[in-house]
């Protein structure tokens, strides 16, 4: 066995480990993280618009949203909130809650 053989193999393995580790870190930080962020923002926007629209008496269109996710949309989120009008319907019969959807989609 040549002198320094163990050292050379050892160093080569070490360099390989560092190379793999650095490649992993580079891949981890450069991967596209925008999609989950967009989903989260859309979900948040739909939920906030539902609450705000409901209490301000504004429709989904007033809030720049739709009341359902468009059929051609790739992804979408809806904020759902319920309303109840006791003045609806005849006396002696319970009214029913009505749901309102504020949907954001692309």
């Amino acid at each position: 066995m040549k002198k320094g053989f163990i050292f050379s193999i050892d160093a080569a393995i070490g360099i390989a480990v560092i190379f793999i580790a650095m490649s992993s870190m580079t891949f981890f930080y450069l991967q596209d993280s925008s999609s989950p962020k967009i989903f989260h923002a859309m979900d948040q926007n739909a939920s906030d618009s539902a609450t705000m629209g409901f209490y301000l008496g504004k429709s989904p269109a007033d809030m720049g949203l739709d009341n359902s996710i468009a059929s051609g949309a790739k992804q979408g989120f809806c904020g759902r909130i319920f309303d109840y009008n006791p003045d609806n319907g005849p006396l002696g019969t319970q009214s029913a809650p009505e749901d309102r959807n504020y949907c954001d989609g692309t």
Binding site: I6, F7, D10, A11, G14, I15, V17, I18, A21
Partner: peptide, 11 residues
Amino acid sequence: GIFSGIIAAAA
């Protein structure tokens, strides 16, 4: 082996 040690520690 000192270099191997340093590389291993860095890894």
